[in-house]
Design a binder for these strands. Structure first.
Length: 578
RNA sequence: GCGUUCGUGGUGUAGGGGUAGCACAAGAGGUUUCCAACCUCUUAGCCCGGGUUCAAAUCCCGGCGAGCGCACCA
């Protein structure tokens, strides 16, 4: 196995980065004074600002498409929703423990060679297979505890104890968009494609959270559900996209093996199977690069059919490389019509569809047996409505009467002369109802923030001393500039306070002031948490109102009047000063 | 969940049955005309709960947390 440069870990860098994140209030263990809880983290004053700004960029990124809107739905979700979505079944894997060595396994995996569809077995059936002499993969003993469901969702109860409804903390935000599909369809005047985004918390009761902020029990998600007509999927022009990206296609498919090519080429070659999925891969790339992910450390990996989620037909992970190796940070799935169809059948909703207008109205000839209610009703009484329904769906019309008609539940009735009338009708059909397909890019915000921090963190040396930079992209840092009075006297702190207030009164700029200790130390503090601009107030500032502005990334300084800094902060042209 | 290593100020560490040190960081003051300078002072710590002991940060047990390996990860 060849070790790529990406795999060569810098000894201790992860520890130093984590220590800095704790010390500077970026990311810290949650509930620390009570011993902490595994899988839960706090964003401190610096981290929370970074998270909010990155999330806002994500929202703006998708809203700028014009056919995507933002929604917000509850985190507490009734059980029935998650039964329909498949999460209650899928998250209730039966687990069993080896009595000898204590190892835990998914029971269905242990017996899958004995049953074609082990996943569907109930706990008693699984126990029978387990008792038939299954060896423990780790210690080869054959003694198993009874299989028990282990749900990865946090459960709760809505309402008073005895009458409460079972509910779960949502494991994904996506269901909120599906619940609102009818409202979205109205909002967009019944025209597809359209999409809805939501950001917020998701919850998964992980068995073993690991790797800092990579596997959390409560995490920040950002998901887009993009509803399309499967027969007329939107096709974006990828020809202008020239960037070359790493792709790892399905290992069982025709294109197995890592390759590098443009998004357009990947679609043309059939590696990416769906044009809309290809477009979202490209837009995901755009977002990640915008917030400061190193493009060299991004790759797209196609799921093998064996690891596909229960709802997905084609699925790509966007993986980012960092201190923990390649980590899935975005999942882009073609969920097809699975969710909407399932919710339509589990609920009473009949509106989870879209209308597809034919370009030309189609003339359709219907050959049918029209029921005569006046005869069918009195004859079949309670079964009459089932008989009418069965006649409506009859495709192979009998050549003659009477005939036997299946009406469901194993029952059949005899249809005789006079009960029906054979009609050949011609109708104009101008369109049809269909269930939209859904393309879902799902972003793990915490994982992306981790990699933004990882890629931005640079350990340098300054006059023989260790010196660290956080080279965050503009608009991602906790504040945009720090205002530094050169000395904490002679009117400089007062002027610095005025400038700070003026910047903070701008709509999208943030500044803070730092007046303690030497100027070099204050620059270092700002560099360490990634503040891109430092404004220094000195004696000249008192005289003419100009300040020096220092650029974090090369420590260059120029003298500018405060008014110009304010206007350039507003229109994002600070870089042009250098 | 199992195994394993570990848990000392904000961060990093020393000590390992008898007064808990150091460095950096932070706060106050001084000095200083732009990149972690210096001086004085200050704040701040043995993860939690049991046990052994005259005495526990130290030894033992349990819990919680962190890293790693196995398992799990729709």
């Amino acid at each position: 196995m060849v070790t790529s440069p990406l795999d060569m870990a810098d000894e201790g860098r992860l520890e130093r980065l984590s220590a800095m994140l704790r010390r500077r209030g970026v990311v810290l263990p949650a509930f620390d004074i009570y011993g902490g809880v595994s899988g839960l983290i706090d964003y401190g004053p610096v981290g929370a600002a970074i998270r909010r700004r990155l999330t806002q960029k994500w929202v703006n990124h998708w809203l700028s498409h014009g056919d995507i809107v933002e929604i917000d739905s509850p985190t507490i979700t009734p059980e029935s929703v998650l039964v329909a979505s498949g999460h209650v079944g899928e998250f209730n894997d039966l687990m069993t423990e080896c009595k000898a060595c204590g190892s835990i396994f998914r029971a269905d995996h242990l017996v899958e060679h004995l049953h074609p569809n082990a996943d569907s077995l109930n706990s008693e059936e699984i126990d029978k297979f387990l008792d038939s002499g299954i060896e423990c993969p780790s210690c080869s003993e054959k003694a198993w505890t009874p299989a028990q469901p282990m749900n990865l969702m946090f459960s709760t109860t809505i309402g008073a104890m005895s009458t409460g409804r079972t509910a779960y903390m949502r494991p994904e935000t996506a269901q909120g968009m599906f619940m609102l599909y009818p409202a979205l369809y109205r909002h967009f005047r019944q025209k597809l494609p359209f999409g809805a985004i939501q950001t917020g918390k998701g919850y998964r009761n992980e068995i073993s959270p690991r790797q800092g902020m990579i596997r959390l029990r409560e995490f920040n998600m950002a998901e887009l559900e993009y509803f399309i007509d499967p027969e007329n999927p939107p096709v974006a022009d990828l020809n202008r996209r020239t960037e070359i990206v790493s792709l790892v296609p399905d290992p069982d498919g025709a294109h197995a093996g890592e390759t590098r090519m443009s998004f357009g080429a990947a679609l043309t070659a059939g590696i990416v199977r769906h044009p809309t999925v290809a477009w979202f891969l490209a837009r995901t790339w755009d977002f990640l690069v915008e917030v400061g992910i190193n493009p060299e450390k991004i790759r797209f990996r196609q799921h093998a059919s064996t690891e596909m989620a229960h709802y997905a037909e084609d699925c790509w992970d966007c993986e980012i490389h960092g201190e923990h190796g390649w980590i899935e940070c975005v999942g882009i799935a073609n969920r097809t019509c699975h969710d909407l169809e399932s919710h339509e059948s589990h609920s009473n909703a009949k509106a989870l569809r879209a209308w597809r207008q034919f370009t030309e109205p189609r003339s359709q000839t219907l050959d049918r047996l029209a029921p005569n209610g006046a005869v069918i009703g009195p004859t079949f009484r309670g079964d009459a409505s089932a008989v009418v329904a069965a006649l409506e769906t009859l495709t192979d019309l009998p050549d003659s009467l009477p005939f036997e008609l299946e009406i469901g539940d194993g029952k059949s009735v005899t249809i005789e002369e006079g009960m029906v009338e054979r009609r050949i009708e011609t109708v104009n059909v101008s369109g049809e109802w269909y269930t939209p397909h859904v393309i879902e890019p799902a972003f793990g915000i915490d994982r992306i923030i981790w990699h933004v921090l990882d890629h931005a963190y640079e350990e340098a040396e300054k006059e023989g001393e260790a010196y660290t930079f956080l080279r965050l992209s503009e608009g991602i840092s906790s504040v945009d500039c720090v205002v530094l009075p050169l000395f904490d006297k002679e009117g400089m702190p007062e002027l610095a306070r005025e400038i700070t207030a003026a910047i903070n009164s701008l709509p999208h700029a943030r500044a803070e002031m730092d007046s303690s200790k030497s100027i070099g130390r204050r620059y270092a503090r700002a560099d360490e948490i990634g503040i891109p601009w430092a404004l220094t107030v000195d004696h000249t500032s008192i005289e003419d109102g100009s300040v020096t502005i220092r650029r974090r990334d090369d420590q260059l300084q120029v003298r500018v009047f405060t008014d110009e800094i304010l206007s350039r902060l507003s229109n994002g042209t600070i870089q042009e000063l250098f």
